[in-house]
Design a protein around this nucleic acid. Structure first.
Lengths: 225, 225
DNA sequence: TCAAAAGTGTTAGATTTACACCCATGA
DNA sequence: TCATGGGTGTAAATCTAACACTTTTGA
């Protein structure tokens, strides 16, 4: 092993995952009671340490997979959190990532095993260390991202109604959207395709189900919601 | 010392600074030839290691001060860069920050001592490790930031002409802006105040000098350029 | 006297917002 | 039959973008 930097000190580096879901009209975050010291019992994001032989991005993907059993989720780095005393035990610098998942894809048994819950974003409890800040920053970034990138669809099932989609955008933006204007804009997005399928679970009349068409999206990625 | 995480490994954590300046109509970045191994002689950002008793943000501010002798510069975190082999010597995770300075505030002697230069953003040489990626990401973030936040003024002297301001926005956005439309928008921003001073260095007729009024800005921070 | 940068308004087109009623169906 | 959510279009207001000439002055 080389020793170029031996006069400097090292730190533990961890990753923390802000996992967003959307259910019953509410934006949700997956959090659990911390099962290790220090901070045992406090509400916390799910995280893990970066291993010597994996990149930080890979560490985040691995951690996310450990928790959810899912791969190829949408992930994006939120940033590094590096206050001295952010971890009560030792110097730990953490890189936060947010991920978007469709809550139905997350196996309930696995969720229970890890002791994590979908908590309404607007009713977050006090949280361990700086995890609240991480969530806030992640939310802010996600809100921006969703305006010009259809990543929000990752929060919905692959077939969804326009009302579901609208509720999702309303939850993320934190304000109501006019139904006619919203549908007008969606109609212009050719990559959101109407199917002939009807969803009857949420109304007597039934609503058309739509799907995301990746190929069409790749032809023209320009939109602004 | 406690040992909560002793089964995990540590990494070196560094900070790298993308320092933007604006001069002669061009966006510039402060870079130098790397003076240490590994990578000696390659073009590189200025950086340093995070010390045990300082936060990552503080480490970045300190590093920036070491280089420029300036405090209270505008800084913003770009993100963590954590590929395994990003440093040829050892595992080093780096947190990048971008900063904005007025090139006239930077003492030439100090600049020479550190062996750094203002390089035109559009003519960057090949760079050490992932520093090119850091710069690109920083530029992207800065471009977004400048749309809704007058941080761009940090790149100009405290007194500036509207033409200078326009050239700055053009350099950052990478495209020409219509002069009349630009001035119309600036006129609506009450925090950009016309002074009675005239700058005669760039034209025979002379141009009014403007200044940023922080108090007015704090009254209403809304604008969009 | 002329070259070079400063300064100034109007209009057409595009985009955004506000707004209200009929439809289909199962309970 | 009625309550519930699904679905649809228009017009006013606002915002954006395009565009050209006059002014001042030092060389």
């Amino acid at each position: 092993m080389t020793t170029y930097y031996s006069e400097h000190s090292k730190a533990y580096v961890s990753v923390d995952c802000i996992i967003f879901g959307f259910d019953e009209g509410h934006l949700r975050v997956l959090i659990g009671k911390r099962q290790m010291d220090p901070g045992r019992g406090e509400w916390s994001l799910y995280g893990g340490f970066v291993r010597p032989q994996e990149s930080v991005d890979k560490a985040a993907a691995r951690t996310l997979f450990e928790l959810t059993g899912l791969r190829n989720l949408y992930m994006s780095q939120v940033g590094a959190f590096g206050n001295i005393d952010r971890d009560p035990g030792e110097r730990v610098i953490s890189i936060a990532y947010y991920a978007l998942i469709n809550v139905n894809d997350y196996n309930e048994k696995l969720r229970m095993q890890h002791g994590v819950e979908w908590v309404n974003f607007n009713q977050l409890p006090p949280m361990y260390s700086d995890h609240r800040d991480m969530i806030r920053k992640a939310r802010k970034m996600m809100k921006e991202m969703i305006k010009t990138n259809p990543v929000g669809l990752r929060l919905l099932p692959s077939l969804f109604t326009l009302t579901q989609l609208q509720r999702l955008y309303e939850a993320v933006n934190g304000e109501a959207i006019d139904k006619r204007n919203f549908r007008k804009r969606i109609k212009e997005m050719e990559f959101i395709e109407k199917t002939e399928l009807i969803d009857k679970t949420s109304s007597k009349r039934g609503a058309h189900l739509y799907k995301f068409n990746l190929a069409t999206y790749n032809e023209d990625r320009n939109f602004k919601l």
